[in-house]
């Protein structure tokens, strides 16, 4: 083959490969950014933070925080009616339905290093936390347990037993309440058989 034609060809080949490669991904990225609107944190890092301790504070630690003299802000995300009828001392109100309204901008932007979210249930506080994290607010954490436990143990009765309470605490010995009877022996055998069948095609080449 003539050397020059070969060189021309290879030059074109490289250009085409690179362009196809780049074009494919450019279209993908543009398409993607049009289809999804910007979360400030990826699912992976959100999941990591939500399943670790770093974004949560229990009642014992909250008490330490309160007595430590560090800057903090208690944020009540229940609705205004509930807030008015009772709240943790010094808590401010930012209803979960209006987290991003202009009325509460000063709470969202407040200087306090730690802003503790609480609600009637832990799940509700976590919801608010997630929405705030998605918007890029990083100073919020959520209270484990809930408003009534926090109020009862921290500010009223001071019952230390409740300090570490949280929603995920096992409240029953599940196993003792849920006996698996003799009639379930048979299904276990069936399960093994199914495993066998599903493994069969794996061996082949």
């Amino acid at each position: 083959m003539n050397l020059n034609t070969f060189k021309m060809k290879s030059s074109k080949t490289l250009t085409i490969i690179v362009l196809v490669f780049v074009g494919f991904f450019t279209i993908g990225i543009i398409g993607k950014s049009m289809l999804t609107s910007g979360y400030k944190q990826s699912v992976v890092s959100m999941t990591k933070e939500l399943t670790s301790e770093q974004r949560f504070i229990n009642i014992a630690d909250l008490q330490t925080l309160i007595t430590s003299g560090n800057q903090y802000l208690l944020v009540d995300v229940r609705d205004t009616v509930a807030y008015k009828s009772g709240r943790l001392p010094n808590a401010v109100n930012m209803p979960i339905s209006e987290l991003f309204s202009d009325d509460y901008a000063d709470i969202r932007e407040a200087d306090a290093a730690v802003k503790v979210l609480y609600a009637d249930t832990e799940a509700e506080a976590v919801k608010a936390l997630v929405m705030l994290m998605h918007e890029g607010y990083t100073s919020f954490i959520a209270l484990t347990g809930n408003y009534s436990i926090a109020k009862g143990s921290l500010f009223d009765a001071q019952n230390p037993a409740e300090w570490y309470s949280n929603d995920e605490k096992m409240r029953y010995n599940y196993k003792s309440l849920f006996k698996v009877g003799p009639s379930t022996e048979a299904p276990h055998v069936a399960a093994d058989k199914v495993v066998d069948i599903s493994n069969k095609p794996r061996g082949g080449c």
Partner: peptide, 20 residues
Amino acid sequence: METKSKYLNPYIAGVLLGLV
């Protein structure tokens, strides 16, 4: 006179190898 190359341009080969 230019010597003839027997081989593929290494950068093209590299891109191909990368794709593999």
